[in-house]
Nucleic acid binder design. Sequence first.
DNA 1: TTGCTCAGTGTAACATTATACCAATACAAA
DNA 2: TTTGTATTGGTATAATGTTACACTGAGCAA
Lengths: 156, 156
Amino acid sequence: MTTPLSATSSHDSSHVKLLAQAQQACQKKGARLTKTREQVFLLLAKRKGAVGAYDLLAELKELDAAAKPATIYRALDFLSKQGFVHKIESINAFIMCHHFGDCNHPVQLLICDECGHVEEIQSNNFDLALRSMADANGFTISHQIVEAHGHCKACQ
Amino acid sequence: MTTPLSATSSHDSSHVKLLAQAQQACQKKGARLTKTREQVFLLLAKRKGAVGAYDLLAELKELDAAAKPATIYRALDFLSKQGFVHKIESINAFIMCHHFGDCNHPVQLLICDECGHVEEIQSNNFDLALRSMADANGFTISHQIVEAHGHCKACQ
DNA sequence: TTGCTCAGTGTAACATTATACCAATACAAA
DNA sequence: TTTGTATTGGTATAATGTTACACTGAGCAA
Ligand SMILES: [Zn+2]
Ligand SMILES: [Zn+2]
Ligand SMILES: [Zn+2]
Ligand SMILES: [Zn+2]
């Protein structure tokens, strides 16, 4: 922990706004957005797409040379629980959520196998359809994983 | 490869029927259901639920002491491609599909976090909903992952 | 302030899941 | 048979994820 947080900022400030949202959300819930968690948050926010835990760890190490796997997984756990970040199960990667506030919303992802782009889409209908289907089986959903692989608009 | 295949059979014969279906499907497609692939198929068919690759490997080793991780992963790859088996991404496990014939059908799973039971459900509506949502984003789906976690009927 | 408590962290080791590589072999087509 | 391709054997290693335990440091009550 030698490098100041300011060193992680850049000319682009959209991620700073995201961070502010996150800080506010944490304050409301009494969750502690510690330095490491904030660093990982910013690394994810600055990323365009998804990133693996160990790639993220490599980046974090530039800010905190002592970082270890547990460091990054703890931070990712925390950020996931707050709903700031989603894990993509089918590619073992993580991606910043740009719709948080609603901390436990259903997640639907379109993953381009060509360029790696990941789009998070929003559909309550879809969520409802899944739930009603589960209901019909007497099943109660606590968490859903919806990940569609294929080709994005740009890669047709 | 010392133990004869017949040693894998038991009093229950439902999996034998499944195997016959699989053999037929492979013949149609010119796919080779080799001895190892068949052994893995039967191990999965006899299982009630999902199983991890290394657990399956342990079972396979009783039939073929020389089996290695690559052995099981190759077999699982093959069986997945034929649509006989589905990988459950969110728990790194594999489960026999009981609806094959339609080799690349959409898969929707209900996974009980309490008892581990996995139910494969069928919904073309659901598939259509996902595809139309993807269409709206100019995205073409080649493979979809839908895994709902929660509690099954028996574990409410 | 002092001491208590507990979430969070540092650190190392470990566990699990999956693939790369290359040689050997089996199979099918020519 | 020859030739090309799919499959397998065998070793090692990559990639991903978890646990255990001691320690720190912020928040809080006395
Ligand atoms: Zn989201
Ligand atoms: Zn693309
Ligand atoms: Zn199926
Ligand atoms: Zn259950």
